Measured scan of single mutants.
Amino acid sequence: MATGGRRGAAAAPLLVAVAALLLGAAGHLYPGEVCPGMDIRNNLTRLHELENCSVIEGHLQILLMFKTRPEDFRDLSFPKLIMITDYLLLFRVYGLESLKDLFPNLTVIRGSRLFFNYALVIFEMVHLKELGLYNLMNITRGSVRIEKNNELCYLATIDWSRILDSVEDNYIVLNKDDNEECGDICPGTAKGKTNCPATVINGQFVERCWTHSHCQKVCPTICKSHGCTAEGLCCHSECLGNCSQPDDPTKCVACRNFYLDGRCVETCPPPYYHFQDWRCVNFSFCQDLHHKCKNSRRQGCHQYVIHNNKCIPECPSGYTMNSSNLLCTPCLGPCPKVCHLLEGEKTIDSVTSAQELRGCTVINGSLIINIRGGNNLAAELEANLGLIEEISGYLKIRRSYALVSLSFFRKLRLIRGETLEIGNYSFYALDNQNLRQLWDWSKHNLTITQGKLFFHYNPKLCLSEIHKMEEVSGTKGRQERNDIALKTNGDQASCENELLKFSYIRTSFDKI
């Protein structure tokens, strides 16, 4: 039985969820670079991206490699990797027998973001014989899940209580170790020597080791999670996991709180800001991140802002960003909400898709409305799209047979046209069989910064309504002859009103 693990408890099935942008060198404390989270699957090609990484700022997932063999891993080693800020997950990587050479110096898994409450997941690794993470000293947050690894031993010899604050939620089941077939031998045991430290858990006094050649490092209890030197002297209180010299914040392997210019500090002093819960960055760093993602459509890219001495992905609820200094300031009234469309555009074809934009005031991208039916549609669209004030790209209304009016965009005031449909149009209306009105132009103002209007096959939309939009939106004169079809717009509506004058002759039985 794995020490510190839980057996036999019912657990939810383990679901495996399925960018080499360097964020800056980590400095003297770390020998390499800070790398983003990685999802490495199918083959070993991307694994080489770990070569210079000291910190993975995010998670590391290595999974679904069915053609790899043990010899493929023999020359692979990433000794610079010290810390993973989120979680480490391995799933069905064939041929991998140990992690001792792959990650010989991995010391800390912070667990800032977890995989279903777990910071370390080893699942269905069919050839893994031992973990071998002999320098792993601290899992700051989260638990361990090690399950269905039929060859995995050296679990009962690990004292997880020396690595985690609590072992109650560890789930370590259905491994070879369960069948008591392992016969784990710690260093020196074969020669009758006791080389590794022994600890007591559940009444068992057991030597602690990761492999037959690597003991588990056990520091004096007084050192807590700070770690200790090879001689057993406690590291500085700002260290986490390990250090090369005692009581020196510049000799830590990793930091308990924050890293700044080669030393570990309790908090980031001005003019620095907390970033990702582990390091200090200056304003320029946060500003660069903001600008890199301002026009990016890459998933996970955030326009970072500053709030409460932190550089964070977005302002919290009730705050909006001051564009001059990136500071989050309290909103006066309802907060603006910028919604970034991942692929640059979004099609609204149902109430469900409209709900995804609920509360958005600025759309960074283009909207395509293609709704053919739905219950209580006008009210639903207004509830979900009615706060949109600005669209950076274009607005396209296409084959939306259920629409009679666009009044559900009740606050839309600006279409920038930074991206144009077919390279020309910022407003595009095609084949809307029941569209009769755009907006009530006596109450609604709309500016279209650039781009043209396109109207074709809107049989109940009168040309007068379209011409009014040209005047109000500032697009009059931009359109070419064929942009607004004269014969297919309003051709099934009563669009022309003329005053009919009647004269009559009164007659009676005795007068003409």
Rank of each mutant, 00 (worst) to 15 (best):
L88R: 01
L89S: 04
T194A: 13
S323A: 12
R256L: 12
N42E: 02
E238S: 09
R92S: 06
V253L: 15
L102S: 01
L81K: 00
P249E: 08
R145G: 02
N282R: 03
L332Q: 14
R41M: 14
I185L: 09
H28C: 14
N43I: 05
G333A: 15
N202L: 04
V55T: 10
Y154K: 05
C215L: 03
N135P: 04
H274S: 01
V173L: 07
L29H: 10
C209L: 00
R113F: 08
G227D: 04
N52V: 02
K193Q: 15
V253Q: 05
Y304I: 12
E207Y: 09
A254V: 12
I201L: 11
K100P: 02
P336M: 09
R256H: 12
G318T: 03
T194P: 14
H212F: 06
K224P: 08
T189S: 08
T68Q: 15
T211G: 15
G183E: 13
I62A: 02
N257L: 06
M137L: 09
M83Q: 12
H28K: 09
G58V: 00
L260I: 13
H302M: 10
R110K: 09
G32T: 03
S161E: 09
H236W: 02
T221A: 15
L76E: 02
L63T: 08
L64D: 01
D184G: 13
A198M: 07
S161Y: 11
N117L: 04
L50N: 02
L326F: 04
N202F: 10
P31G: 14
N179K: 14
V34L: 14
I82N: 09
D178K: 06
N138V: 14
K251L: 11
T157W: 02
L327T: 09
R41W: 04
C234V: 00
Y171I: 13
C315T: 01
G241I: 01
C234G: 01
T85E: 03
G37Y: 10
R279N: 04
Q245F: 14
C255H: 00
F78E: 00
H59S: 11
S98P: 00
D248N: 05
G32E: 09
I172H: 05
E57T: 05
I122S: 08
C331K: 03
H59W: 07
G241M: 03
R69V: 15
H59A: 10
